[in-house]
Design a protein around this nucleic acid. Sequence first.
RNA 1: GCCCCGGUCGUCUAGCGGUUAGGACAUCGCCCUUUCACGGCGAAGGUCGCGGGUUCGAAUCCCGUCCGGGGUACCA
Length: 510
Amino acid sequence: MRKVSFRLLMVRVRYAPSPTGSPHVGNIRTALFNYLMARRHGGQFIVRIEDTDKAREVPGAVEEILESLRWLGLTWDEGPDVGGPYGPYFQSQRLDLYHKRVEELIASGHAYRCYCTPEELAEMREFQRINKLPTGYDRRCRFRKPEELERLAAEGRPSVVRLAMPLEGTIVFEDSIRGRVEVESKLVDDQVLLKADGYPTYHLANVVDDHEQGITHVIRGDEWISSTPKHVVLYRAFGWELPVFAHAPIIKGPDGAKLSKRHGDTRCLDYREKGYLGAAVANFIALIGWSPGDDREKMSLREMEEAFSIERIQPNPGVFDITKLQWLNGVYIRDLNASELYDTVRQYHETTQDPEYRQSKAAQTLGKAFEEFSREYVTSALLLEQERVRLLSDFAEASEFFFDEEYEYDPNGVAKWFGQEYVVRLFEFVIENLPGAALSVEEAEGLVNGAADALGLAKRAEAIHPLRVALTGRTKGPGLFELMSVLGPDRIRRRLERTLALIREGAFAS
RNA sequence: GCCCCGGUCGUCUAGCGGUUAGGACAUCGCCCUUUCACGGCGAAGGUCGCGGGUUCGAAUCCCGUCCGGGGUACCA
């Protein structure tokens, strides 16, 4: 089949988070989708901070948001830090604009002032609930007599501005993921557009800004789908053209409920702390709810940019399967070359805040290794563990024996091999036949084969296993010859002598 | 309660009227091998939520139903 390629004339999309905390993976995935959309069509990706709720604002959240994007490898063309021609990119700095637009709406009869107090509204809802009526604002201020409104205003009562929803008819809009969505207009609330504190609500601000900033495609979370009719009414009231709407599904936890703190780590940056690579996480979350249409699973950001289309986003929610992320992360780790591997692991080690990692003895050993051992030696050690690790945080434990001469011996390995009558002679043979300066993998193999022959062992495995336990304390890990080559003659000698001494002391007797 | 959106192996997905329902993770087995992993091969796992239609033929279209999720704020 021929690859069909098309580009839209102009695409401007935005990620519009509210600074109420550090973004979690479901939220950040919408950012990813928007980014991919922009890059696919050579358009612009805009970051806009929706800080219209002063009460919920969390200090530092904006930086967390930008840092999450950076970590995943996303870049943006306009935003709070880089500016741009459609700024400011904080809604709290655009208040005049919303006020102006609201006046237009009131003048044209598409909005009205409402003087109901929060207490009145609560009472109204309570009444509706008790009488099993549909909940929602009963529009009482919409139909008050002018003189009554004047009186309320004269009293100095605080007011909000509400959207005057059409009382009849159906609102229809096209969602590029779900198709046609229809809602009866009278079932939609007269939503507050401007709060009593002078801040707009999301509904007003997002419509005004999306229009003012030339947004062509609104890709956002599923939770917005039921308020989209309000937005459609607003666009019409202003006489503006609708953007393309696309509502992406949520991400669920293993129990089927929306992913949340109960499911453990959901904060995007937590995955960095745990030892995941940004590229792997970006790849993985994109694949929950989107697929390129072929069998590809591992995809770089660049590849996803080329393959992306809104239509291929699934309408149904997906479960965040950490096991599959771990596998993918392992794939990415194996892709690192020697120098990237060293830099990545070191960078992780020096910056992660994960308490479990930082407090582990293995991590402390690795920290010392970075200071005390050569880059070459550490790199060689990491290289030997690269294919059996899934997280960056696994390297410390996996490579610990390379850097610690006081390693402990696995009791199972000891029980199985150190009781063999030939092990002492085996270790002695290896010590005696060690070359002086360096030991290549081939030489290590020759040495071990020679030992097996000299001792008349039936299988060289009988030499390999005890040597691994003696040299690393472990029964599993990298190939013995590779590991011997990295360790080098001096360390091998020292470790075998230490083991021999312990055997002679009877330290392993049970 | 009312409104909206969903429903393909345990999980992520392909599929758009005719396929033995394909791939991936996880699971199990075999191979490779000095172990573990990596890699390779293979197996098991799906009555396409359920019930009705439409059609020669339905995972694919229509209706109903059940289940799940979201909304129903002067939060986003």
